[in-house]
Design a protein around this nucleic acid. Sequence first.
DNA 1: CTCTAACCGAGACGGTACGTCTCGTCTTTTG
DNA 2: CAAAAGACGAGACGTACCGTCTCGGTTAGAG
Lengths: 199, 199, 199, 199
Amino acid sequence: MGPEKSKEKSRSGRPRSEKTRLAILEATADLLVEGGLGAATMESIAARAGVSKVTIYKWWPSRGSVAIDAYFHRYRETLNFPDSGNLFDDLITQMSIMINAFRGRAGEIMAELIGQAQSDTALAQTLRTKWLQPRREKTTIVLQRAIERGEVRSDVSIPVLMDQLYGPLYFRLVARHEPLTIEFADELIRNTLQGVLQE
Amino acid sequence: MGPEKSKEKSRSGRPRSEKTRLAILEATADLLVEGGLGAATMESIAARAGVSKVTIYKWWPSRGSVAIDAYFHRYRETLNFPDSGNLFDDLITQMSIMINAFRGRAGEIMAELIGQAQSDTALAQTLRTKWLQPRREKTTIVLQRAIERGEVRSDVSIPVLMDQLYGPLYFRLVARHEPLTIEFADELIRNTLQGVLQE
Amino acid sequence: MGPEKSKEKSRSGRPRSEKTRLAILEATADLLVEGGLGAATMESIAARAGVSKVTIYKWWPSRGSVAIDAYFHRYRETLNFPDSGNLFDDLITQMSIMINAFRGRAGEIMAELIGQAQSDTALAQTLRTKWLQPRREKTTIVLQRAIERGEVRSDVSIPVLMDQLYGPLYFRLVARHEPLTIEFADELIRNTLQGVLQE
Amino acid sequence: MGPEKSKEKSRSGRPRSEKTRLAILEATADLLVEGGLGAATMESIAARAGVSKVTIYKWWPSRGSVAIDAYFHRYRETLNFPDSGNLFDDLITQMSIMINAFRGRAGEIMAELIGQAQSDTALAQTLRTKWLQPRREKTTIVLQRAIERGEVRSDVSIPVLMDQLYGPLYFRLVARHEPLTIEFADELIRNTLQGVLQE
DNA sequence: CTCTAACCGAGACGGTACGTCTCGTCTTTTG
DNA sequence: CAAAAGACGAGACGTACCGTCTCGGTTAGAG
């Protein structure tokens, strides 16, 4: 999904215009910010980018794909995960960055992308591969090291633990029944690590 | 949202047809099951129910609203929460029911409804009031009693704890990166209650 | 077409409400004046008259029927034809009255009624019976007397002569290619009586 | 109104499909013949022509416009006016052609078009420019020559004379109070030229 | 002085067409 | 030969009136 820069030796014919690719991504990102996913129709993207619809269809299969690429293009984040040796500190630092991002426009757009993905399997696939997976890989490393340090029990399943940590966050992003705050993250991490039972 | 049965004494004019209301809900539910939310267009609902589009618009503001009412109509569940006195048992029982429901067609439809709600605030509101809230109220009571019994620490925020328990579940429903299994629920509850730190 | 006051001895049951009948005619006439025939929908007439649609359908078969009755109700004219003994004077007098009426709102409405009658045979019938015919009968008498007086040739067909006099007038009303003026009527009558050939 | 064949050098983009244009006109003409103007709805035209409604709206502003173009397309007539040097002969020849056309389906449709034009100014405009005007121009020339020949009085207004000749004809077409026959035309022309007064 | 038939309001309802929107494809010309 | 321009078929959208159909409440003459 999304246009990959061709690794092949220059194929014959006119090469793809990088200017056009960027115009599309910028236009889409602008539309996403201004009116959400609903505003980023193929027609409006083409019009805004000064590009033909066909050109977009040539390189992206669906409007969701363009949107997600535009999202990454605009919000290309460092994706750095701290690894200080103290699990709680690492988690609260990383989660704070994420929550700060999700409280703004980027959060609304991500929520809409997740929403759209419910009826667009290709988009769902892209979201998993390009968004979720890289983050889960980084997190896996951090949690693995915490297990190795003896901080976390070794019988804990890392995928389950990751869902315990990030599931509640995405749940609030999407269900909006409670606000996404740092305090929430703090208690969430604390509870997750220590449990909630009376000692 | 959705038509409430009038409690008022019969108002003037022809009364609303219960037959029509049911035909709409059944038709919509059928369409949801057959082809998901995308298949439940206003046109197809009207055609299948043998009903005029205007009649649907008269009583429901959007296609999402009809869908959600149809969903509740078809999957009107007991919404019973066990309250045995043992928190783990109660949670695993309740969550198993939920997971069993979400692993079938009902789960796909719920995921699509949540998806649609990302770009339809009215639908989002309905989902919160008619789906989430009642369940959270039941759960609140159970957790409250666990605190009173001294099973759970009294400084734990119940909303946060509920998100710890159900957030990961909805996350897997929506992101589909890992399967929704009873084993997952089991470890999730266990971890949540006891924590993951090495003792 | 249109409600006739029942000549029968009072039938059992509640008698028809004269108030309602008038409310409908007044409301329709108002709507005709304000927005033409297009504005006088059954819905708007019912709403404006504070009357149920069914009541209207009870007494009139179509919207055109109501409109035409409302037109006659509002513009009930004397329908007097002068009969001075001089044909030209009589014609110019009568035609001036008609042109003056047709140059205002009444003319626009009549044009729309004629228009509607092209796709509503019942309305067409009513227009002929209630509007055209009475006028043609009056005119026939006047022309008949002109023939008897020896003013007009006795081999002239009266219906044809009437169409020569009034056809051009309705043509301008409906085609609007030239204005409806007294000067037009004057030359029309003069030409018709004397012919246009060089003597 | 209606699509004009572009005189411009080929503009960029996909050119308009002539096949589609013709399909629309043929479908509309068929519908007009089969069921009159009422049958020629945008939906039925689109369905019959195998064309999208949007495509029709792209090129015609209203259903009346399509209908009138379809009418001209189907009944593209010679529009020739004889000019033999004898006014009566020319008029009776031309009027006979017209009456023969108007006595068939074409007359009904024209009447409906005139009817529709009473509540559709754009359509009215088109009727005047594309139907009435060309005919009046031809007639003007013939009458002008009759005046020059000294056959007709030079103080007669040509527009008024044209309304005297064709007004009665359209009046009968639209009011249907008397039949449209050649005999009618004959007496109409004779009366108009010679007058009806006793000499 | 009730009974009862018809009238009337309110408004739900199935239906048809409207005019608009976006999608994804197709067909030209331009650079 | 890629890209732009834009025509096109498809099909859902939400709205407007149509004409019909219950309802409950009313109104006047008949019994």
